[in-house]
């Protein structure tokens, strides 16, 4: 006899052991489904486009060219960067884009999966995992571009580059935290997705992507308090110079991310049935 499943109105928080057990079970069950959904989404994404996979390269190249031209024309001035500016911008932009995708992805994915959510009871984690897989896939595609660029500009790499993927995962998790936190409310209110896109634009401005880390003034303080800053800077330093300027900040943000993500996940699980109920009643 399979185990009995009981649906009750009571809060899952009153049964914490059961809650954690089902979270673990669903995470295991979601892996294969997430893989399927990811394959489905990625193949569908490029199948109806003439340029196909080239669309993964075009936006970062366009951005990098734009900023490089602007800088050469002295439209704005940035301080010295450790590596040539086009490579600097392209590398940062790719990291930022990966973070932004991880943040907006879950909201978008859950919104798109609305009809499916309303009809089939599958592990909801799969949608988020599939989106993260897609984020990772897109990053790998862009990585090819970065490698080409680094070779062209003869950017020296540090041996610590092998640690960079770990830091990158922390960055993606931070993005996921934001995404999973907003996803349930995002299904209820369209404002969330619209607002999120706007905030991401502003957030980019506060992150040392097109400029090196500022040290002075209110702006410097804002950038320093931005949780993305230590993660992004650390990844770049691990890959290039190998000298970490803000290791403490990196670990503080990482730990907060881990704890926050677990709490957000619990919140997501609890919220989803209420969300499904409201979107289709």
């Amino acid at each position: 006899m399979p185990p009995e499943i009981v649906h009750t109105p009571d809060s899952l928080l009153r049964r914490p052991r059961f809650l954690f057990w089902t979270m673990w079970q669903d995470l295991l069950a979601a892996r294969e489904l997430a893989w399927r959904l990811m394959v489905r989404d990625i193949s569908a994404q490029y199948r109806q486009a003439l340029l196909g996979i080239a669309w993964a390269f075009i936006p970062p190249i366009a951005t990098a060219i734009g900023f490089t031209l602007a800088k050469d024309a002295n439209v704005f001035t940035v301080g010295e960067t450790a590596i040539p500016y086009p490579a600097y911008v392209m590398f940062n932009m790719t990291l930022w884009q990966t973070f932004a995708d991880a943040a907006t992805g879950p909201v978008q994915a859950v919104m798109q999966a609305k009809p499916m959510l309303a009809r089939v009871n599958f592990p909801r984690e799969a949608i988020v995992l599939a989106k993260l897989g897609e984020v990772g896939f897109n990053f790998l595609i862009k990585l090819i571009l970065i490698i080409g660029l680094f070779l062209y500009f003869r950017v020296p790499l540090s041996w610590t580059v092998i640690l960079a993927p770990v830091a990158l995962i922390h960055l993606i998790l931070l993005g996921t935290l934001v995404g999973v936190l907003l996803a349930p409310i995002g299904v209820l209110y369209q404002d969330v997705f619209k607002g999120l896109n706007m905030i991401m634009g502003f957030w980019l401005f506060l992150t040392p992507v097109i400029y090196p880390v500022p040290t002075q003034g209110v702006f410097g303080a804002l950038v320093a308090w931005n949780p993305v800053t230590p993660l992004l800077v650390t990844i770049r330093e691990l890959a290039t110079t190998g000298v970490l300027t803000n290791a403490v900040g990196f670990w503080v943000v990482s730990l907060c991310t881990f704890v926050g993500l677990l709490l957000t996940w619990i919140g997501f699980r609890i919220a989803m049935p209420y969300v499904v109920e409201r979107v289709t009643s």
Partner: peptide, 15 residues
């Protein structure tokens, strides 16, 4: 099917 929570009562499923 467990898509939405009941407001009162219980559903038990074996299978």
């Amino acid at each position: 099917s467990g898509l939405i929570k009941p407001d009162t009562g219980k559903v038990r499923i074996r299978g």
